[in-house]
Design a protein around this nucleic acid. Structure first.
Lengths: 330, 330
DNA sequence: CTGAAAGCGCTTACAG
DNA sequence: CTGAAAGCGCTTACAG
């Protein structure tokens, strides 16, 4: 492999000078610079990142911890982040917890040993252990999607989004509105969205019935299917006429069950999701949902990360806007 | 930061011994080993990967070059790869070309400068420049999804899959079968699948009409929509009764156009895709497609990579099997 | 404008 | 069983 020493010899200068020419830092005569650059070009020389990183304590890598690598949300966020950081010469190192809490902690450690310059976490749950580990992280750290205490957080406006969606049902004349959620370990999705739903019902003098509320076991389509089934079973005799589901995938599962049972959507049951999955536009009927603009969230998070890396002050909490997409399912 | 020297001091041994204890290589008395491990535990020490990598020329990282990070195919493949390599302590470094040919070359270089131990490329196009750069790669290299000359390749059985799909239409009584493809720069998708379609038609004595063939500009839903529109326009008076689309997303776009125009699927037009996108199962009517089992492809590729890293011989070409999923659109 | 020297944190022959 | 020393490929004060 070509090293900086090889280049130095070929150019008849010291490696110090080569380094300066390469990094545009310190004086190098135009003559020498050209000679060096020509050789670099010809040989296709690329500095060893390990050596640079060992020496400078900077790796040019941002670590990202994803709950699941193969979801649209993750993909969009990563894309947004990449768009911003790649322009500044940063690489991204992706890790996937597969929704395993222990892996979150493990990866935070691992990423640090890999000398990443910063860490972005897309958490799906919040617990004491996680918070403790984060406290000891020595590089810039940002949470995306969940608000963590004393951690720079970029969050979606889950509360108002869910209020708006619930209100949409009410405006359309529904007063029996069911809810399909997820567990409370996920504050953003499991708690905030549910709270907004309940608050909005109460504010409108509507009853919140336990039979109309169900939490899916996970975020899967199947889980939505199963939840809808449970709600219909529990509420026999007094079924809801609308169901607010906290994610598109689960909503699609719920629709699937309704279709199987011969329900017409939205006539017999109106339904909505959150997330603006591509699928939501192509399913029949098309799904009313909320677009969180994940890519923009990724961009913003990346920008905050760059700011932190440049020792700029950044606000501890950024809340993103959203867009309600009204389609045929409501 | 804690370094190996700190640990050595705390344990009253040399860093040589600490290194040996950590890597389980060479003799260390049980006594000393325990003492060291305890301290490592307590301090949460993790060796600097940069230093290790600089010293050993191994980084424990496999670089992956993706055409697009936010597609189901990519996600599944990555998942499969990750599953296998993470067990052996390897990390994955993901790069995204965003379908830009120059970036493929750029990333191959970049990954090498990052001292990755191996590179996996999911190519969408093959050209001389790319081949030349690959020739000079000094680490194990595998191509997934495209067969590259003199490069270890893991490929899908595009030819037979496309034959099977075309035959399915024929079995259902269609003799006017259209084709929506992509450009020829992508040999697997743009050439092989098309060739299989044409061969199958000919073998069955059916005519291959230019008006029934259209190439989309990219892999998008919109591109499928537009292609269907073009075919219907060009073939007015003698329209096809079935359309074989080379990807699910494009097929969904094509369906969208057909629905808008009042076509009943499959009665007025049968349609099929390839890829087994999640969406394909939930769209109405559900889409007949081919499951390439991308995750398994990822796993196999990863295994081959590990074999290469262990200097085992691996076969230059592996062809994966597939599964035709017959649903309601045909 | 340029170079010699130190040092980043490791691993690995080599010697004992 | 253990340690001193060299060296991986860089960058950065320091000196000239």
């Amino acid at each position: 492999m070509t090293t900086i020493n090889d280049i130095a010899k070929m150019a008849n200068v010291s490696r110090t000078t080569v380094s300066r020419a390469l990094n545009n830092n310190g004086y190098v005569s135009e003559d020498v610079r050209k000679r060096i650059m020509k050789i670099v070009e010809d040989t296709g020389y690329m500095p060893s990142v390990s050596a640079q990183s060992l020496r400078t304590k900077r790796s040019g890598v941002i670590g990202i911890i994803l709950p699941k690598i193969s979801t649209e949300t993750s993909s969009r966020v990563v894309k947004g982040i990449n768009e911003v950081v790649s322009k500044e010469g940063f690489q991204i190192l992706l890790t996937d917890t597969e929704l395993d809490k222990r892996k979150e902690v493990e990866y935070i450690r691992l990423l640090q040993s890999r000398q990443v310059d910063g860490i972005i976490l897309l958490a799906t749950n919040v617990n004491e252990g996680l918070l403790n580990v984060i406290k000891d992280v020595k590089v810039p750290f940002i949470s995306l999607g969940q608000e963590l205490p004393n951690v720079t957080s970029v969050v979606y406006d889950d509360y108002h989004a869910a209020c708006d969606m619930t209100n949409l049902f009410i405006q359309r004349g529904h007063d029996k509105i069911a809810f399909i959620g997820v567990g409370e370990e996920d504050p953003a999705v499991g708690q905030t969205r549910k709270q907004a739903y309940m608050d909005t019902l109460k504010k409108n003098g509507l009853q919140v019935k336990d039979e109309w509320i169900h939490e899916g076991g996970d975020f899967s389509i199947e889980s939505g299917y199963e939840s809808m089934k449970q709600i219909l079973k529990k509420s026999e005799g007094n079924p809801p006429t609308a169901t607010f589901v906290v994610t598109d995938r689960m909503a699609i599962g719920a629709m699937e069950y309704l279709k199987e049972q011969g329900y017409r959507i939205p006539d017999d049951m109106a339904i909505s999701g959150i997330g603006a999955a591509v699928m939501s536009a192509y399913i029949t009927p098309s799904l009313t949902t909320i677009d969180y603009n994940n890519k923009e969230a990724g961009r913003l998070t990346a920008q905050l990360m760059l700011d932190k890396l440049n020792n700029k002050k950044v606000s501890e909490k950024s809340t993103l806007s959203y867009r309600l997409i009204s389609r045929d399912s409501v």
